[in-house]
Every structure is written in structure tokens, then in C-alpha cells.
């Protein structure tokens, strides 16, 4: 704006307008780029838009135009899907399994990581490497024998069995993550507590665990995303309908019926809704969790 008020010297009159033009052009370019970026995101989200729109249609056949909102949204298909999926029960099961897995993983992995970081010997380094090598083992490599182990322990088709399996498969990442975090925390606080006569577990509970809070939050969200979206372990380890998770309920509901899109899509919407809610309300932690390991 200053360039518009009368220029005082010869020099300014010659350069200022040119600079303004350049700046305006850049700002305009930025505006266009922003709009294009938003349009690109809209394009990526189109399938989800279609999912919602078509799920609100009523009828036995696909709508001619899957992009148009229905004149009057129809909730009957939602009601049917809700009942067929035993929705509240499935959500409750998933919630139970998720929370138990998160609690078990956080507790065991943070204790182990603490010992690995504060007791640096060759054997703890080896233990750490064994845990971390677990990061690359595809679940399919252990799936069949895991089924056998669960059968021998009478843990097939039980909440306990699937929680142990999830906690075990998440342990490598959790140990890796907590150890990385603890290395950035100085040991002085813990030493002061030890000098005050606090025992090992009290030091952990009162000093270390509270320090880990940001890491714990991120890890818990990681577990939620993992467990909430997984199909393979419930498919193999859980067999009774009453223990179905949400993903399994979606699979079972759709897999056994021939459904029209209007009947199919409400099931999917109900299936993804809880995690969408978690993501949108805790976005900051999710983004932080995804970007773990890439600076701050």
C-alpha cells in the first residue's frame, strides 16, 4: 500500500511499481495454487462424497446419478444396517479390544524401553534390536502358527487372545517409539527420586510415566487406528458373532448378502464413522504420530 502514496524520489518511482506488480502477481499465483490444491483434495474425497450421498438413497437399484443428493434422504437402509451389524455391540467389542490392547502395550513397552535406555549393556542393545527387527515381520508370516498357539492356550475366540496378539504385534513399534522418546529425556529427575528413596516402580509411576504422556497419547492413537481397521486377526481368531468387531461386522454383513448400493453403503458409513470422529477430534496427535521420526 505504501507504494501507492506519492513516491518521494526518482529512484523509488522506477522500482516500486515493478515490485508491486511482481508481488501482486505472486499473491495471485498463490491464490490460484491454493484453489487448485483445494480442488485436488475435493477430487480425492469424491469417493467418500459418493459413499455418503448414495447411502441416503432409497430403492432397490443404483441411482442414475450417484453424485446428486436425494430429494428426501432415506434412513431406512441405515436402520437395517444398524440392526444387521449389531452395531452397538460391535462398537463395544472393538472399543474393549482397543482399550485393553493400548493399555497392555503402553505398560509393557514403556517399562521395557525404560530399562533398555537406562541400563545400557550389550544384552539390552541386543534385546532392543530383536524387538525392532519385529517391525518388518509381515503378520502373514506368523499367522498360521499363531492360530495354533492360541488354540493350545484355549484363547481362540476370546477377547484375551486377540488382545494378546495385537499387543504382541504392536510391541516392536511401541518399544522403538518409547525408547526414542526416553533418549531425549535427561535422567536427573529419576536420580533425584532415587536419592529420595523411591523404589524402582514408584520412580516409574511418579516420574517417568508422566513424562511419557505425549508419546503415550501418540502411541495410543496408533493402536486405535491399527486395531480399528484390522480385518485379518479378528477373521482368524474370533469366530462367534457376539465377539465381532466393527470391521468383521462390515465384512460379515456384506459378505453373506447380495446388496444393492443403497443397502451396502450405509453399512460402510457406520463402519468408518467412529474412526472418522476420532481422527477429526484428535487430528493433531494423528498427524504427530504419522510424522514420528521426521524432526519436530
Amino acid at each position: 500500500m505504501t507504494t501507492l502514496t506519492a513516491p518521494a524520489t526518482q529512484q523509488q518511482t522506477s522500482t516500486a511499481p515493478r515490485r508491486t506488480v511482481r508481488r501482486t502477481r505472486r499473491r495471485l499465483g498463490n491464490g490460484v495454487a491454493s484453489v487448485l490444491l483445494v480442488l485436488f483434495a475435493a477430487l480425492v474425497l469424491t469417493p467418500i462424497y459418493v459413499l455418503v450421498v448414495v447411502s441416503l438413497h432409497h430403492g432397490q437399484s443404483a441411482p442414475d446419478n450417484p453424485f446428486a443428493f436425494p430429494t428426501a434422504p432415506d434412513w431406512q437402509n441405515y436402520r437395517t444396517a444398524f440392526v444387521n451389524m449389531h452395531y452397538l455391540r460391535s462398537v463395544g467389542n472393538t472399543l474393549l479390544i482397543t482399550l485393553a490392547t493400548a493399555a497392555l502395550t503402553v505398560l509393557t513397552a514403556s517399562l521395557a524401553a525404560w530399562a533398555i535406555v537406562r541400563h545400557t549393556r550389550r544384552w539390552t542393545r541386543t534385546v532392543y534390536q530383536v524387538f525392532v527387527s519385529g517391525l518388518t515381520i509381515p503378520i502373514f508370516v506368523v499367522l498360521t502358527p499363531l492360530y495354533e498357539v492360541m488354540q493350545k492356550l484355549h484363547l481362540l475366540d476370546s477377547y484375551g487372545g486377540i488382545v494378546l496378539a495385537y499387543a504382541a504385534t504392536t510391541t516392536p513399534f511401541a518399544v522403538f517409539f518409547f525408547a526414542g522418546f526416553l533418549r531425549t529425556v535427561p535422567a536427573e529427575l529419576e536420580e533425584a527420586a532415587a536419592v529420595d528413596g523411591a523404589g524402582l516402580l514408584r520412580t516409574f509411576a511418579q516420574i517417568v510415566f508422566p513424562l511419557l504422556k505425549p508419546a503415550t497419547a501418540t502411541l495410543a492413537i496408533f493402536v486405535v487406528m491399527q486395531v480399528w481397521n484390522d480385518l485379518i486377526l479378528p477373521l482368524v481368531l474370533l469366530s462367534s458373532d457376539s465377539k465381532q468387531t466393527v470391521t468383521l461386522a462390515v465384512y460379515a454383513t456384506i459378505g453373506t448378502h447380495t446388496l444393492s448400493p443403497e443397502q451396502l453403503l450405509p453399512t460402510l458409513v457406520l463402519g468408518v464413522l467412529p474412526l472418522f470422529a476420532v481422527f477429526l477430534s484428535l487430528q493433531r496427535y494423528v498427524v504427530a504420530g504419522i510424522a514420528v521420526g521426521v524432526g519436530k
Partner: peptide, 9 residues
């Protein structure tokens, strides 16, 4: 946990 449900399998 890791031994029983990942390494052993």
C-alpha cells in the same frame, strides 16, 4: 509377550 506370540510362531 513378543516371544510367545511373534518369535515362537
Amino acid at each position: 509377550l513378543f516371544t510367545a506370540f511373534v518369535l515362537y510362531p
